[in-house]
Computed example of a mutant assay.
Amino acid sequence: MATVTITIEGKQVEAEHNSTLLSVFKDHDILVNQICGGQGMCASCHFFVVDGVDSLTQPTTQEQMTLQFTKIDRPGARLACQSRAIGDGIVIELPIGTFVESERDLETKIGRKADKTLIHPMTGEVLVEAGKLVLRSALEKMKESSSKFADYLSKR
């Protein structure tokens, strides 16, 4: 079977032609969330294409809808579960930070500085930048985003 070369965070890896980036991440022990189980319904497996966008399949309709809903404010965002590697030269970066496990997890951090950027687990939205104080407003922002995301999913 044909392989392609992908650079992830500066490390080159080989992957089977037409494999999803999610499977590539798993095969190379790169931790990535997949809250929806790889259905393209959340943005927890998102990554950023730095180079080689033409070496990936075009975004699926599902991926486009999900990315339109999310609040990821960096260009080149794609979903690993929906993107397939079809050529060499793909260079990608992963989101910097950590996904918040739950509202309760975020609540325990209120009043302390975030040691890493805190990211909403489903939408990919930055809740608190690294080094900033975690405020109750971040929890409210997370609840609001979770509620909107649940509404979005229920209408599909």
Rank of each mutant, 00 (worst) to 15 (best):
P95A: 13
N33M: 02
L133M: 08
F149E: 02
C36T: 03
E107S: 11
L106G: 10
K143T: 14
E63Q: 07
K143F: 06
I86F: 11
L67G: 12
A77V: 11
E107Q: 12
L127E: 08
A130G: 10
S147Q: 12
T66V: 05
Q64I: 10
V100H: 07
D51N: 15
C81A: 15
L106V: 02
T108M: 02
E101P: 00
M122C: 08
V134D: 09
V128S: 03
G89D: 05
I86E: 12
I92R: 04
L127Q: 09
A43I: 02
I35F: 03
I119M: 05
V49K: 07
K26R: 13
E9D: 09
V24H: 06
E101I: 02
T117R: 07
R104N: 12
A114M: 03
P95L: 15
V134F: 13
G38I: 04
F149L: 10
D29G: 11
I8P: 09
A15K: 05
G87E: 04
T20K: 14
T117A: 12
M142P: 13
L94Y: 15
Q68C: 05
V32D: 00
K116H: 03
K109P: 08
K71Q: 14
L56T: 02
S19E: 15
K11A: 07
S146M: 14
I35A: 07
A77K: 04
I119L: 10
Q58M: 12
T57G: 09
P59V: 07
D105P: 01
D115G: 00
S137D: 06
E63F: 01
V128R: 08
G97V: 13
K113D: 11
V134P: 09
Q39L: 10
T98A: 10
Q62Y: 00
H46N: 10
G111N: 11
V13L: 11
V13N: 05
I96F: 14
A130V: 01
T20A: 07
I92Y: 09
D27K: 15
N18R: 13
E103G: 11
C45V: 07
G131V: 03
T117F: 10
F47I: 02
R78H: 06
L31H: 07
K116R: 08
A77M: 08
C81F: 14
L79Q: 10
P75M: 09
D73S: 04
L139P: 03
F69I: 02
M65T: 01
V91G: 04
T123F: 07
E129G: 00
I96N: 15
Q34L: 05
K113Y: 06
